[in-house]
Protein backbone atom coordinates (compact mmCIF):
# COMPACT_ATOMS: atom_id res chain seq x y z
CA UNK A 1 0.00 0.00 0.00
CA UNK A 2 1.27 3.43 -0.90
CA UNK A 3 1.91 5.75 1.98
CA UNK A 4 -0.05 8.99 1.61
CA UNK A 5 2.26 11.98 1.89
CA UNK A 6 1.28 15.60 2.05
CA UNK A 7 2.25 17.65 -0.97
CA UNK A 8 5.39 19.77 -0.77
CA UNK A 9 4.60 23.29 0.36
CA UNK A 10 6.61 26.09 -1.19
CA UNK A 11 6.64 29.81 -0.70
CA UNK A 12 7.54 31.60 -3.92
CA UNK A 13 8.09 35.31 -3.83
CA UNK A 14 9.68 38.57 -4.75
CA UNK A 15 11.70 40.25 -2.05
CA UNK A 16 12.88 43.85 -2.15
CA UNK A 17 11.78 46.59 -4.49
CA UNK A 18 12.23 44.74 -7.79
CA UNK A 19 9.05 44.32 -9.83
CA UNK A 20 10.29 41.93 -12.54
CA UNK A 21 7.89 39.04 -11.98
CA UNK A 22 7.88 37.17 -15.30
CA UNK A 23 10.23 34.46 -14.10
CA UNK A 24 8.85 34.06 -10.60
CA UNK A 25 5.31 33.60 -11.87
CA UNK A 26 6.40 30.98 -14.38
CA UNK A 27 8.18 29.12 -11.59
CA UNK A 28 5.10 29.37 -9.34
CA UNK A 29 2.91 28.00 -12.14
CA UNK A 30 5.36 25.19 -12.94
CA UNK A 31 5.55 24.03 -9.30
CA UNK A 32 1.78 24.25 -8.93
CA UNK A 33 1.28 22.26 -12.13
CA UNK A 34 3.69 19.66 -10.71
CA UNK A 35 1.29 19.13 -7.80
CA UNK A 36 2.94 21.22 -5.11
CA UNK A 37 1.20 23.67 -2.84
CA UNK A 38 2.49 27.04 -3.87
CA UNK A 39 2.05 30.19 -1.82
CA UNK A 40 2.92 33.18 -4.00
CA UNK A 41 3.68 36.29 -1.95
CA UNK A 42 3.23 38.92 -4.63
CA UNK A 43 5.62 41.81 -5.09
CA UNK A 44 7.68 44.09 -2.88
CA UNK A 45 7.96 41.83 0.15
CA UNK A 46 10.38 42.55 2.95
CA UNK A 47 12.57 39.70 4.26
CA UNK A 48 10.54 39.89 7.50
CA UNK A 49 7.26 39.41 5.66
CA UNK A 50 8.66 36.50 3.69
CA UNK A 51 10.01 34.68 6.73
CA UNK A 52 6.85 35.30 8.79
CA UNK A 53 4.66 33.92 6.03
CA UNK A 54 6.97 30.94 5.55
CA UNK A 55 6.80 30.04 9.24
CA UNK A 56 3.05 30.58 9.50
CA UNK A 57 2.39 28.52 6.40
CA UNK A 58 4.81 25.82 7.53
CA UNK A 59 6.49 25.55 4.15
CA UNK A 60 9.26 23.16 3.18
CA UNK A 61 11.14 25.77 1.21
CA UNK A 62 11.29 29.40 0.16
CA UNK A 63 12.13 30.32 -3.42
CA UNK A 64 12.98 33.97 -4.02
CA UNK A 65 13.54 35.90 -7.21
CA UNK A 66 15.87 38.92 -7.25
CA UNK A 67 16.77 40.68 -10.50
CA UNK A 68 17.72 44.06 -9.05
CA UNK A 69 21.24 43.29 -7.88
CA UNK A 70 20.25 43.32 -4.20
CA UNK A 71 20.65 39.53 -3.85
CA UNK A 72 23.62 39.59 -1.43
CA UNK A 73 21.81 41.70 1.14
CA UNK A 74 18.35 40.19 0.75
CA UNK A 75 19.28 36.49 0.81
CA UNK A 76 21.56 37.07 3.79
CA UNK A 77 18.77 38.81 5.70
CA UNK A 78 16.27 36.02 4.99
CA UNK A 79 18.78 33.42 6.24
CA UNK A 80 19.40 35.46 9.37
CA UNK A 81 15.68 35.77 10.10
CA UNK A 82 15.10 32.06 9.52
CA UNK A 83 17.80 31.35 12.08
CA UNK A 84 16.35 33.84 14.57
CA UNK A 85 12.90 32.31 14.09
CA UNK A 86 14.22 28.80 14.71
CA UNK A 87 13.19 27.84 11.19
CA UNK A 88 16.52 26.73 9.75
CA UNK A 89 14.84 23.57 8.47
CA UNK A 90 13.18 25.69 5.77
CA UNK A 91 15.30 25.47 2.63
CA UNK A 92 16.11 28.74 0.85
CA UNK A 93 16.68 28.78 -2.89
CA UNK A 94 16.41 31.47 -5.52
CA UNK A 95 17.08 32.83 -8.93
CA UNK A 96 17.81 35.99 -10.88
CA UNK A 97 20.55 38.12 -12.34
CA UNK A 98 23.43 36.97 -10.17
CA UNK A 99 27.09 37.27 -11.22
CA UNK A 100 29.38 34.22 -11.00
CA UNK A 101 31.48 35.83 -8.29
CA UNK A 102 28.55 36.07 -5.88
CA UNK A 103 27.45 32.43 -6.18
CA UNK A 104 29.99 30.69 -3.91
CA UNK A 105 29.45 33.05 -0.99
CA UNK A 106 25.67 32.87 -1.18
CA UNK A 107 25.80 29.08 -1.27
CA UNK A 108 28.32 28.92 1.57
CA UNK A 109 26.00 31.10 3.66
CA UNK A 110 23.18 28.64 3.22
CA UNK A 111 21.30 29.40 0.02
CA UNK A 112 20.74 25.82 -1.16
CA UNK A 113 20.48 26.55 -4.88
CA UNK A 114 20.55 29.52 -7.24
CA UNK A 115 18.96 29.23 -10.67
CA UNK A 116 20.21 31.60 -13.32
CA UNK A 117 18.71 32.78 -16.63
CA UNK A 118 18.14 29.93 -19.05
CA UNK A 119 17.15 27.38 -16.42
CA UNK A 120 14.48 24.93 -17.57
CA UNK A 121 11.36 24.81 -15.40
CA UNK A 122 11.76 21.05 -15.18
CA UNK A 123 15.13 21.53 -13.45
CA UNK A 124 13.50 23.69 -10.78
CA UNK A 125 10.63 21.21 -10.33
CA UNK A 126 13.15 18.34 -9.99
CA UNK A 127 15.17 20.28 -7.45
CA UNK A 128 12.11 20.99 -5.29
CA UNK A 129 10.89 17.38 -5.55
CA UNK A 130 14.36 16.31 -4.45
CA UNK A 131 13.96 18.18 -1.17
CA UNK A 132 11.72 15.39 0.11
CA UNK A 133 13.72 12.54 -1.40
Amino acid sequence: MAVATSPIRILIGKVGLDGHDRGVKLVARALRDAGMEVIYTGLHQTPEQVVNTAIQEDVDAIGLSVLSGAHNTLFARVLELLKEGGAEHIVLFGGGIIPDDDLPKLKANGVRMLFRPGTAMSDIVDFVKGLRA
Partner: peptide, 22 residues
Protein backbone atom coordinates in the same frame (compact mmCIF):
# COMPACT_ATOMS: atom_id res chain seq x y z
CA UNK B 1 18.20 52.46 -9.02
CA UNK B 2 15.22 50.65 -7.48
CA UNK B 3 14.73 53.00 -4.50
CA UNK B 4 14.62 56.02 -6.84
CA UNK B 5 12.21 54.22 -9.17
CA UNK B 6 9.96 53.48 -6.20
CA UNK B 7 10.14 57.04 -4.85
CA UNK B 8 12.01 56.26 -1.63
CA UNK B 9 15.24 57.68 -0.26
CA UNK B 10 18.50 55.77 0.14
CA UNK B 11 18.24 55.93 3.94
CA UNK B 12 14.80 54.29 4.00
CA UNK B 13 14.99 50.77 5.48
CA UNK B 14 13.27 49.35 2.37
CA UNK B 15 16.20 50.60 0.27
CA UNK B 16 18.78 48.52 2.13
CA UNK B 17 20.96 46.59 -0.30
CA UNK B 18 19.39 48.22 -3.37
CA UNK B 19 21.11 51.63 -3.48
CA UNK B 20 22.96 52.17 -6.75
CA UNK B 21 22.59 48.49 -7.68
CA UNK B 22 20.56 48.52 -10.88
Amino acid sequence: DMPTLMGIDADDSRAHGEVGRC
